[in-house]
Design a protein around this nucleic acid. Structure first.
Lengths: 152, 152
DNA sequence: AACAATCGTTGACTTTTTCAATGATCCGTA
DNA sequence: TACGGATCATTGAAAAAGTCAACGATTGTT
């Protein structure tokens, strides 16, 4: 995640054409965001990824591990580790797939939902501060554009 | 970057509240983008990061390695590796800092600029396909929002 | 029934990230 | 001017993350 000074960074280099490169802008905003998010989630023993898994486990959508891997752009083996960790801590559990007995469905426990609610609140504060330069409307606009870019 | 199927992903899980989490949206778009970008840059022996460094080296802004690290959200030691690689291939060179003799300024060679132009063209095609769900106007809007979020 | 494909899991392997230590240099201050 | 603390690039080691092939169990297809 690189060296991240707390003092406001003077973006002398943003003038370069690269400052228009969507790939870099995404990488940069993602990097600084991850740092803040992970810091905020540390109080709950979570990181960005385990939080994502927990969120989906709490969603009622009953995702399989394969779906989690696809949705989160992770290798299936990484999902195994994440779920192992959450399961050991009693926040989620593996249930057998309904149509497919190979698949395992990840569902949250009551404790998992409790932790999730707290963590989510903390993350929202965090996200707001990350995007504080954006108005409420621009914030929503950004979300919509990202979603559209991903899923049309 | 995890398992990435070529077939269109059915975003069943996007319905979850997490589909509104800016952090996840950024991570996801960045992940899929990186994959495509790196594939496109492979023809030139570059990756996203070395391309970024090369771009800044070509910009005329005469960045120091420290500035590169800050701007690209990398550890200074990672910049050393990236510059080492580009320098060995004759695409950039290290010059002594003007005011500060500790610092090293990274500048492009003629060959570096040649490669950069080709790579940039390839990346633009790639980026356009990544954001094909967005209109030209939305594309520009996304850029502006990301820049504003980063630098106000 | 046989076959290829898919799911979760494991383990090995590579790459990336993180961090502390170092010599050179800069800057503020006594 | 000289001292002391800070910053720069660099190195190397340790930790974390990512990649990949193989496996048993199960599925769907022929």
């Amino acid at each position: 995640m690189g060296t991240q000074s707390t003092k406001a960074e003077t973006p002398r280099l943003a003038a370069a054409k690269i400052g228009n490169d969507v790939g870099l802008l995404l990488a940069k905003l993602h990097a600084t965001g991850s740092l803040l998010n992970n810091k905020a989630l540390a109080d709950y023993g979570l990181r960005e990824r385990s939080f994502s898994v927990l969120t989906l486990a709490c969603s009622g959508l009953e995702p399989t591990q394969r779906e989690l891997a696809d949705f989160l752009s992770l290798d299936p083996s990484q999902v195994v580790s994440l779920v192992d960790d959450l399961e050991h801590r009693g926040l989620v559990k593996r249930a057998q797939g309904k149509q497919d007995r190979r698949a395992k469905i990840i569902v949250s426990t009551a404790e998992g939902r409790r932790i999730h609610n707290k963590a989510r609140a903390a993350l929202e504060v965090c996200e707001r501060s990350q995007l504080e330069a954006l108005s409420e409307e621009e914030n929503a606009q950004l979300r919509e554009l990202l979603k559209k870019a991903l899923w049309g």
